[in-house]
Design a protein around this nucleic acid. Structure first.
Length: 220
DNA sequence: TACCAGGAGAAAA
DNA sequence: TTTTCTCATGGT
């Protein structure tokens, strides 16, 4: 991983899209819930499910654990996979309660906390790292499908590296920097949605000649 | 109509 | 161990 090129990509993304101010969520717990619900799901639909939880006065670990499965699944329905996500969110909330809540997690070092999170049913590497970075402000770089797509098109990665290899590579190249990781991942998602689309699979996309971020002002 | 969206776990090979 | 399948709603 080339640190200079990684930083150059970040600068260009930031210059084009501006600060993204992630993660959308009012509290660390709400961010955690969003991280579970957004698995393979458009954020617009996650927002509806979160709004349902808030409207039902269920945006707390204890409230969620106390809901019957059918009731919780119904609230999560707009986010898709509602039966799966109801179970996953319940498992996560049970874990959080057992660990003493969000504040108590502050006493645990990042590697131990990450390992613990990965043991929760329904929490994989990306969800764990979303939680660590955005809810708990730990220096963990989030790798997702957008990251693979963007950086493989740029030729900076092959694209088939393991999650852990990519995460370690980004972290080693960029150094432990929570604000940078936060903004960088948010910019990757923003760019992937707006510019670096799945189709056309254009090699000229993504910060190459065709990227709007490289065009001079005034050009279409 | 087909594809895609801020994955993860289970089952099959 | 690696690959494939399943979960599901909503927007484009």
């Amino acid at each position: 991983m080339n640190a200079r090129r990684l930083r150059a990509v970040h600068e260009r993304l930031l210059g084009h899209h501006g600060p993204q101010h992630w993660w959308p969520g009012d509290t660390p717990f709400e961010i955690m819930v969003g991280a579970v619900l957004t698995q393979n799901t458009a954020w617009r639909n996650v927002e509806r499910a979160i709004a349902n939880l808030i409207a039902a006065r269920a945006m707390s670990a204890r409230r969620i654990v106390g809901l019957p499965h059918a009731r919780l699944a119904r609230l999560l329905r707009p986010a898709g996979y509602f039966n799966v996500k109801a179970r996953r969110l319940r498992h996560f909330c049970e874990w959080l309660i057992a660990r003493g809540g969000v504040v108590a997690l502050g006493a645990v070092d990042t590697p131990a906390l990450r390992h613990d999170l990965l043991g929760v049913h329904g929490v994989g590497p990306e969800t764990a790292d979303d939680i660590l970075l955005y809810a708990l402000r730990r220096p963990v770089f989030v790798i997702d499908a957008y990251t693979r797509r963007l950086f493989s098109r740029l030729g900076l990665i092959k694209g088939d590296e393991s999650y852990e290899d990519l995460r370690a590579g980004f972290e080693a190249a960029l150094g432990a920097d929570v604000p940078l990781y936060n903004e960088y991942h948010a910019l990757i998602v923003r760019h992937a949605k707006d510019v670096c689309r799945p189709r056309p699979r254009c090699a000229a996309c993504c910060l190459r000649r065709a990227c709007p971020g490289r065009r001079k002002p005034g050009r279409a």
